[in-house]
């Protein structure tokens, strides 16, 4: 807990292989904080872009992953007035439709919560050490990083 612009600020970062319960996490997030009027949640889901996705496997860098996510979330806390921040990101094997990750931000007003959630997403897409590998048609291929994901960081 730290003091963020007058708000008591909590940060939770979770990196795990197991699925997470989005409903329970959303329910628990910032529960009891009557000073926070805005809660934003974002969930990333395994997408079958071309059809025929047999699965996805996410590799990560144990140790650096937790560190990078905490740094990104701490920077969000420094830039916006946030009461609570949550980042959950999975690794390992997943199927189309599975939830990969979620972020949640809570603030007194919605602008801070929305902007901070977008910032978290932009940064953890290209600055957190995760790599996606897709299986389709019996072949496996690493998902290439997109130029626009890198460009998205410029707006911050």
């Amino acid at each position: 807990m730290s003091d963020q612009g007058g708000l008591r600020s909590g940060l939770r970062v979770v990196v795990q292989e197991a699925p997470f319960d989005f409903g329970a996490e959303a329910e628990r997030f910032a529960a009891g904080r009557t000073d926070l009027g805005a809660v934003v949640t974002f969930t990333g889901v395994v997408r079958d872009v071309a059809g025929g996705l047999e699965g996805m496997e996410i590799e990560h860098y144990p140790g650096m992953t937790e560190k990078a996510l905490t740094e990104i979330a701490s920077e969000a806390q420094a830039r916006w007035s946030l009461g609570e921040v949550l980042v959950i990101h999975r690794y390992g094997k997943m199927a189309a439709g599975d939830r990969i990750m979620m972020v949640a931000t809570a603030s007194a007003h919605r602008q801070h919560a929305f902007e901070a959630a977008e910032y978290l997403m932009d940064y953890l897409k290209s600055r957190a050490p995760f790599w996606k590998k897709e299986s389709a048609g019996g072949d496996q291929s690493w998902v290439a990083a997109k130029d626009e994901d890198e460009a998205a960081l410029d707006r911050w």
């Binding site: 990101h89 953890l124 290209s126 050490p129 996606k132 990083a145 890198e150």
Partner: peptide
């Protein structure tokens, strides 16, 4: 020291 391709989180 770690070497890897550009990251694809999220």
């Amino acid at each position: 020291v770690a070497f890897f391709p550009p990251m694809t989180g999220g």
